[in-house]
Design a protein around this nucleic acid. Structure first.
Lengths: 74, 74
DNA sequence: TTGCAATGTTAAAAATCTTTGACTTTACGT
DNA sequence: ACGTAAAGTCAAAGATTTTTAACATTGCAA
């Protein structure tokens, strides 16, 4: 599949709302690479559930406040 | 898959709390196969973020009420 | 202007998730 | 006992996510 995921996110805003955290710093805290954070921010693909949990934890919010799923189709 | 994921879930309970929904019925509603639901229920692996969103929607709860992430050692 | 940190981007390989198909087991009703 | 639905399990193939490594672009400060 080459279609972008129907899931958007507010990671970029959350990073800057939290001390202008860089992609690298976020990547280090959630245990993925800088490129992975960049790709997720740009909705190239949506992360694993575990990565999503870690990101939400870093920012102290619920997963739903980081990722927005637009129930398309159906 | 080499190690079980540090994410557990309450799908089995939720299915039975919602009219004894079968794995097949849940699978149909979230767009995956029966084997995938079975594997997730048994924590063989954790699902994609999109699958997690769909499951939570079926049961009308937040992702955090379906999946529990135990922030273990990292 | 030059240098540097942050970010954007790509390709290939690795890891993980999902499907398909088949077979087994369990539980329940007749 | 038999038939059936639901669930457990497995292997191989397919799809998606992540890593690794490299190079390009942007913005800002000295």
């Amino acid at each position: 599949m080459v279609a972008p995921p129907p899931i958007t996110n507010t990671i970029r805003r959350l990073r800057f709302d939290h001390g202008e955290m860089t992609q690298q710093q976020l990547a280090d805290r959630i245990g993925v690479t800088r490129q992975t954070v960049a790709a997720i921010e740009q909705n190239k693909y949506s992360p694993s559930l575990e990565a999503a949990f870690r990101i939400a934890e870093v920012f102290g919010v619920e997963i739903g406040q980081v990722f927005q799923w637009t129930k398309s189709g159906s």
